[in-house]
Design a protein around this nucleic acid. Structure first.
Lengths: 149, 149
DNA sequence: AACGGCCTTTAGAATAAGTCTAAGTTGAGA
DNA sequence: TCTCAACTTAGACTTATTCTAAAGGCCGTT
């Protein structure tokens, strides 16, 4: 984590009334460095290789706290397992139905401005766009097997 | 279910190699008549008031079969509980953070054309847009309490 | 209309994600 | 440094979903 980012995190955590424990830093640092949308279990397994250890309850507490502080986003994409994402900039997601990979999609790549025309009084505060399909490498494999048959 | 719809369902189920059991009709009929995005538990509770009874396993089997047949969509919006939706026409969803209600949003209301400019080779087959915010009636309550204070 | 294969349903046990609890620990303001 | 509310912890608990093995029923064929 750069010093700049660290300061930003500190001020956000402070604003949210959260203490800066080693466990919280470790979780956030991991999410910032690894954009793999891990589950709580994956985070636990990875962090417990190193210092500091964190129990399951702490991982969940931390993730929820970071979500409330707006530093992390919780995603439900595939199934009933929550995935987590350091919320550095807004972005969308693409899921490959062949290999299951979940990738980030930069907002610039999507011509989808969620300028909604809902009934009067509705207030959209945030939105999430999940695209599903086949990623480039799986598409290639599909084409290859088609040509063979 | 209208005769027309029933025929459509029969042909889709047949195409998917699925038998037309009373339980499957009951689940689909309930989803078509009630756009409340129920959980598997809510469906089970509701159906077991009437004929035919269906066990938990059957409800899940049926929902998965209907999903594969493209007649039903599985949604993970709030948390780790799956919600189900008769997939009659494409539409989006709006979740109110105050009352938790999940509402349908017609595509016409969203100026979001998912014409994505992903890396070459990517193929978007479907997408799902979930908007979060405050619904009209909750917004009104919020304003009312602001004026009082 | 009856038959029989095989898909479907069922109850209940098993699994897994996430939450709760109560006791010990610690970050950070004074 | 002192203090205490906030944090962490292990493990029990809850709840959604899946699995299993046996009984049942849909439907093409006769």
């Amino acid at each position: 984590m750069t010093t700049e980012l660290r300061l930003q995190v500190e001020s956000r955590m402070h604003a949210a009334g959260l203490k800066l424990t080693p466990q919280r830093f470790a979780v956030l640092d991991y999410l910032i460095r690894n954009h793999i949308h891990p589950t709580a279990d994956q985070i636990t397994a990875r962090l417990n290789n190193r210092f500091p250890r964190a129990s399951r309850a702490t991982i969940y507490n931390t993730l929820h706290a970071l979500c409330e502080a707006g530093l992390v986003r919780e995603l439900y994409v595939d199934g009933a397992v929550a995935r987590y994402d350091a919320l550095i900039e807004t972005h969308h997601h693409f899921v490959c139905r062949a290999c299951g990979t979940l990738e980030d999609v930069q907002p610039a790549a999507v011509r989808a401005v969620p300028r909604c025309n809902l009934d009067e009084g509705y207030c959209v505060e945030s939105y999430q766009l999940v695209m599903r399909g086949v990623c480039a490498s799986c598409k290639q494999s599909e084409n290859r097997s088609k040509n063979l048959s």
